[in-house]
Simulated assay, not measured.
Amino acid sequence: MTAATRVLVLNSGSSSVKYQLIDMADGSRPASGMVERIGEQSFPDHATALAAIADELAGKGVGLDSPALAAIGHRVVHGGTRFTAPTLITDQVLDTVRELVPLAPLHNPANITGIEIARKLRPDLPQVAVFDTAFHATIPEYAARYAIDSETADRFSVRRYGFHGTSHQYVSRRTAELLGKSPESVNVIVFHLGNGASAAAVAGGVCVDTSMGLTPLEGLVMGTRSGDLDPAVLLHLHRVGGMSADEIDDLLNRRSGMLGLCGDNDMREVTRRVQAGDERAQLAFDIYVHRLRKYLGGYTAVLGRVDAVVFTAGVGENSAEVRAAATAGLDAFGIDLDPALNALRSKAPRLVSSPLSRVAVAVVPTDEELEIARQTFSVISSGDR
């Protein structure tokens, strides 16, 4: 009988579904892909998209009916305070995820739809929810609480949840391996810099603070999101600018960040414009980097001892300019970047700090799909089903 060692990872968005089939026995990936433009003619709904994925897998000889398929792992953006670990999906679990929709109205509904359809396709197969927020559930209460009336905060579930948790967990663990140490012995500051961006302070493998908050809007400057902002700006825009809540939401989430500052949310184009002497792009770049440095300094104080600063995701992995600017002149912090190593392009985890650096600076490509598969397989292998 064929051993069931494969996990299908599904990431269901509002208009797309990404998938990867990962064999946990050898790390191979027999299939991967993405269905886009759901809601248009070719794929009018998620059911059609999932059916197309099932057909694609079957065409490659790795269909959903394969005896080698052990489980399906689903990315779910928000677990609130209810889900702090990967969780086997039951009807009750799914009902609870539905209750959390107000905390992630743009993401959880699509995640739920993907789960519902996948369970219909394979009702006999274990399916596991892996939550973006779960890794950050260890943040102490004094870092998770906002300084607003406690009863109001509790009534509306207002607190810091954090996101990109699977990435931060994977990257912090891989960084420890890169240093030849156990995760429990290493303190790491992780910068996940993509179109969405977040930082995390990880002490001995445990997250103790992160930049995103109630929603993915707080924290670093991002591609189209503002990051940290005086809350009174929202009141000002409403009272003086006459903007509605929906208009402000659109401004801060879709028309801010690098796009709002200079008209480009692709760091490659921003960097090209900086090199060409574009002052608007230079200011946007400087604002972006200034925010990174503030969090680097702040999380150094939070951790007390930092063993590594690590960059990941699209910008973090590929922009030598961002890494250089974010760590420049931090000799007092024990950080010394090696320009030659930093300039090298590679898909492998690597150190880009000099031998003189007391704090390692690393570039570690993230692999959220592998982390979801690993956590999914761990749940079904534990016997807690």
Rank of each mutant, 00 (worst) to 15 (best):
257 G>S: 10
246 D>N: 12
245 A>G: 07
240 V>S: 15
240 V>P: 10
241 G>Y: 08
219 G>K: 01
231 P>T: 00
241 G>P: 09
238 H>G: 14
247 E>S: 07
217 L>Y: 02
243 M>L: 14
249 D>I: 00
227 G>Y: 03
244 S>Q: 05
227 G>P: 08
229 L>A: 10
228 D>K: 01
259 L>V: 07
256 S>Y: 02
225 R>V: 01
255 R>G: 08
227 G>L: 01
231 P>H: 07
223 G>K: 06
227 G>D: 05
225 R>I: 01
228 D>A: 12
240 V>W: 12
239 R>H: 14
257 G>L: 02
249 D>V: 09
233 V>W: 02
218 E>A: 15
243 M>K: 03
246 D>L: 11
255 R>T: 10
223 G>L: 09
256 S>K: 08
242 G>E: 04
254 R>N: 15
226 S>H: 02
245 A>W: 12
224 T>I: 03
236 H>A: 15
259 L>I: 00
232 A>W: 14
222 M>S: 09
217 L>W: 06
218 E>S: 14
228 D>Q: 06
217 L>F: 00
239 R>N: 15
222 M>T: 11
218 E>F: 13
229 L>E: 05
248 I>L: 11
221 V>D: 10
234 L>A: 13
234 L>E: 07
249 D>K: 09
217 L>I: 03
253 N>M: 03
225 R>W: 01
215 T>Q: 05
227 G>V: 00
221 V>M: 07
244 S>K: 01
247 E>Q: 11
233 V>A: 12
259 L>Q: 13
248 I>G: 04
238 H>R: 14
242 G>Q: 04
257 G>M: 07
256 S>D: 06
233 V>G: 05
240 V>H: 15
230 D>G: 11
233 V>P: 00
226 S>P: 05
222 M>H: 03
243 M>R: 02
223 G>Q: 05
239 R>F: 13
228 D>V: 07
219 G>A: 05
243 M>E: 12
215 T>D: 07
252 L>D: 04
240 V>C: 14
235 L>Y: 13
255 R>C: 13
230 D>P: 09
237 L>P: 08
218 E>Q: 11
259 L>H: 10
216 P>C: 00
216 P>Y: 00
225 R>K: 03
234 L>T: 09
252 L>E: 13
253 N>C: 04
257 G>D: 10
222 M>P: 06
240 V>F: 14
236 H>D: 13
244 S>I: 03
219 G>N: 06
227 G>R: 02
221 V>L: 13
258 M>N: 11
220 L>I: 11
237 L>K: 08
233 V>T: 09
223 G>R: 05
215 T>F: 00
224 T>R: 03
237 L>I: 07
233 V>C: 06
233 V>K: 04
226 S>Y: 03
244 S>C: 02
249 D>H: 08
223 G>W: 07
221 V>W: 05
